[in-house]
Design a protein around this nucleic acid. Structure first.
Lengths: 138, 138
DNA sequence: ATACAACCTAAACCTAACTCCATGTCAATA
DNA sequence: TATTGACATGGAGTTAGGTTTAGGTTGTAT
């Protein structure tokens, strides 16, 4: 069992964020001591890991909450949950592809500026033509 | 030459966003007609593509603006621009790795719910158990 | 017993990136 | 000439996801 401060240090999530998640209903099963202090256990940690995963994949907090509610309802929501993850799979793959595209452009820019640095100028024949922004972005 | 509406349709960027970018100084070289109507050309389109790329890689608009200002200053800012792209390269690679991690978990869940659907049940006692990775990874 | 650090809540505040609104101008068509 | 639709502006409003503040409570080390 962990206090909120221990969880914060362990998962590198600000205390204020943990309390915010709780308030928003994303941690519906966090226990409390008799003195009203939150006590997190290992399943709460897994819950937070899942929040992190779904947040990374682009899901909003309200939709993560919805997913947790489906879990609580039980087997009659299996279809919705399956559909949700299929959707997130697609969205995440698209997001990775988009980032890979951006990375390719950025890698080109790294090389461009490496050469520009050597020459002391961006005015390098051959590269300039290839540049997206001929006049402004050198 | 294109009007703001044509650019909006072409690049799938809302008109309000284009005007917002202009107001924020991200499109410093957009020409106007005598009647004050914006006229975009091909270099403005490239400029917007670069904004999209850098936004995807996680750069904020104010830093994109900074980059454009460095471009306008000239060769004395080559180092800053080089450093910026090296940094974005690192950030983007990290972001891709993080998304790939999330995708792996999501793929597990897809499989988990595919099987649950077949059986008609998730076969786990409660929410916390369902969320826990120990039930996810056999 | 008394510090004092860590916990609690409600509510105000914050930031980025838009988005909408009211009001007015421009340009092509009937 | 009059209508109409796309354009313009400044400024207010929105949304998501927190963060901070004020004021109070709990738990532990001396």
């Amino acid at each position: 069992m962990y206090t909120i401060g221990e969880i914060s240090a362990l998962l590198h999530i600000p205390i204020s964020t943990l309390r915010y998640y709780d308030k928003e209903g994303l941690l519906p099963l966090v226990n409390r001591t008799e003195g009203n202090i939150r006590l997190f256990d290992d399943t709460d940690i897994e819950c937070l890991n899942m929040i992190e995963c779904l947040k990374t994949s682009g899901l909003q907090l309200k939709d993560i909450k919805q997913f947790f509610q489906w879990c609580e309802i039980g087997d009659e929501t299996i279809d919705q949950r399956h559909e949700l993850f299929l959707q997130q799979k697609k969205k995440t793959e698209e997001q990775i592809a988009k980032l890979q595209d951006a990375l390719n452009r950025i890698n080109y820019k790294c090389e461009y500026y490496r050469i520009a640095k050597e020459k002391g100028s961006t005015d390098v024949p051959g590269l300039k033509e290839e540049l997206s922004m001929k006049y402004l972005i050198k």
